[in-house]
Design a binder for these strands. Structure first.
Lengths: 222, 222
DNA sequence: GAACTAACCTAGTGGAGACTAGGAAACTAC
DNA sequence: GTAGTTTCCTAGTCTCCACTAGGTTAGTTC
């Protein structure tokens, strides 16, 4: 699937519009992942696509448009991973593990997609806002699945909503952090990564669910 | 302490070299935090410092030099937080909580420092390498403190070293993720953030330490 | 093979931004 | 006040890069 850096001497081939668009999208994902939004140049994206810069503009209106398009595609993919793996009749722990495993499998197969989504938050405010917006869609899609599991907590309480948001943030931080770490150590088997995620995240959540929270921190308002 | 966006009409004041350097450093931290390395322009940093661009170059050799200098200063500050708060005779749980609290207190007081350190990883490879290098120093400074606590694990085992690295990554991900989330919701009291960190991170680690790992994940090779 | 279409290129524009040379203005010492 | 020093500015240079106008060539249809 990977375009790779074609060694220059490759014969130029004429592709259909759809095929070329795919090639450009894949190359752009790579470059955005490696350099971030600002650091990525259309010229490099074009070069890795085996094409010159104007061709990129035949398929995407602007650099922003290209970026947004990739962002939406890849985030939608990850949402699908949750939607497919999380719901079900099995015990929560198994479903969480299954979802984690599928999630890590996705980033294992699409390393540049993961890096692009998780690494770049910077650049001009417009891009940051776009990133936040698309990420919020994912959050809105996935969090309800998890909220149902934490039924013990009182969902009407507004302080609980904050707490839930924080748990989401913890989940996101752990998964993304592990994914980035793992992407630089491909020799580690996926099971080991999933196990660490389970051991830190799930066991903690499970305890909280059972009311065994860390006591000194629970004081309501000091 | 904050420079803020001086409303243009301010009278220009002549400062000592050291004082001006401080002002520029503070302004640069803000701008790097908001826009990332590439998105930050020397011109904007200069403007927020109440000065024109060439003055920046009287104090820092280049944009890279300025960035590196800030990176080192702020990471060193955070390392100090751990060094001061973590060691001690108290039970581990209390020391962890105390450290978390102090850590979040630091990012509460220095929001731009936090954002600059945790948000930007992109741009040209040189900058990314610089970031990784300075972050590794912090890791090297802090991880030994934590490793001592997990004495139950066999430190000679190389698989354990990987696991330790992953736990570090989880810790980093959770703290940084929560810090970024919190920085956009200043009304949340610090205790609540610390409590969530403890409930997810510490309780999980504690269980692992007691050998109560999540079992289905431990299968060696499926 | 001629006519048509769609993919692709050459060559360029305009703007942004890092960085500099050299001079003006303020503060200090006497 | 005058001379010397230090802070700061004006006015540029140069490079990089997003984006475009208009032409060229490769496939397709008849």
């Amino acid at each position: 699937m990977s375009t790779g850096s074609t060694p220059e001497a490759t014969k130029r081939k004429r592709l259909s519009a759809a095929a070329r668009r795919e090639v450009i999208a894949a190359a752009a994902t790579e470059v955005f992942a490696e350099r971030g939004y600002h650091g990525a140049s259309i010229e490099e994206i074009a070069r890795r696509s085996g094409v010159t810069p104007p061709v990129v503009y035949d398929h995407f209106a602007s650099k922003q448009d290209l970026y947004r398009s990739l962002l939406e595609t890849h985030f939608a993919d990850l949402r699908e991973v949750w939607r497919i793996n999380f719901p079900g009749p099995d015990p929560a722990g198994e479903r969480v593990e299954r979802s984690f495993d599928a999630w890590f499998a996705y980033v294992e197969e699409h390393p540049f997609a993961g890096r692009m989504l998780f690494r770049d938050t910077t650049g001009d405010p417009e891009i940051a806002a776009m990133h936040a917006e698309v990420a919020a869609e994912s959050r809105a899609g996935v969090m309800p699945l998890a909220a149902a599991e934490l039924g013990v907590l009182n969902l009407a309480d507004s302080a609980t909503v904050d707490t839930l948001s924080m748990f989401w943030e913890v989940l996101r931080g752990v998964l993304q952090g592990l994914a980035m770490w793992w992407s630089e150590r491909p020799d580690i088997p996926r099971e080991q990564v999933v196990a660490v995620a389970m051991n830190t995240l799930w066991i903690g959540l499970e305890r909280v669910q059972q009311g065994e929270a860390w006591s000194p921190g629970v004081r309501p308002e000091t």
